[in-house]
């Protein structure tokens, strides 16, 4: 495992911890899209079907279980926990996420590495992860104000994507058998979606001001 990949995994983990911290410490999920969180839970559940068939390393297995458990915990809190549930911006979180699920599934059936149950769901999870942030970005855009922890959550998610791109570039040049074009193309799309957010995040950081997105 190279340094970019490891740093990418860690920033991914940190982003989830920041989100859990926000929900736990403030007992609020304002500014967080339940739809995006549900999509992530679906991403992990469909991608890690190989937990039952392949063993890669203890690190790999533990991280997969952590991602599945934490994403389900976040969805559970936002749906079931009284205080957290009340702070959810339901009327702003109206992105039609089922369209993303349907589109990604259709694409996975058409474009996959092999036409098998597991490979189709793997491709589906890669496509869905690329666009799963959209309901979250739309919610932020609508609410305008972004609190610090929410801003940091998205910042770390974006950093994870950027580091994975560096990881693929590194692997492309150092490993003969490395080919992950489905993941690479989806990863580039996904990282691109963050570019706009990063721009405003950088501006607010530079001006030492609260992050505000233009209407």
């Amino acid at each position: 495992m190279n340094i970019f990949r490891f740093a990418g995994d860690m920033t991914h983990l940190i982003s989830i911890l920041v989100l859990l911290l926000k929900i736990y410490a403030t007992k609020s999920c304002s500014g967080i899209s339940l739809k995006t969180q549900e999509l992530y839970a679906l991403v992990f559940l469909t991608r890690y079907l190989d937990l039952f068939t392949d063993f890669i390393s203890v690190y790999n297995t533990v991280m997969k279980l952590v991602f599945i458990a934490s994403s389900l915990a976040i969805v559970w809190c936002m749906r079931m926990h009284g205080l957290v549930k009340r702070s959810y911006d339901k009327e702003l979180d109206t992105f039609r996420h089922y369209l993303l699920v349907a589109g990604c599934f259709a694409l996975a059936v058409l474009v996959n590495e092999k036409f098998t149950f597991q490979e189709i769901f793997w491709a589906f999870s890669i496509y869905l992860e690329a666009v799963a942030i959209l309901p979250q970005l739309v919610l932020l855009q609508r609410s305008g104000n972004v609190d610090n922890l929410t801003g940091q959550y998205i910042f770390f998610l974006g950093a994870y994507r950027a580091l994975y791109l560096l990881n693929w570039i590194y692997r492309y040049f150092t490993e003969v058998r490395f080919s992950r074009w489905i993941a690479c193309v989806s990863g580039i799309v996904q990282t691109g979606l963050y570019a706009d957010f990063f721009y405003y995040y950088f501006l607010s950081w530079k001006n030492n001001a609260k992050l505000q997105l233009p209407a």
Binding site: H12, D54, N60, Y164, N167
Partner: peptide
């Protein structure tokens, strides 16, 4: 026949 690369990423 080349062996397929494993999906070792998260």
């Amino acid at each position: 026949h080349e062996q397929e690369p494993t999906k070792d990423e998260l």
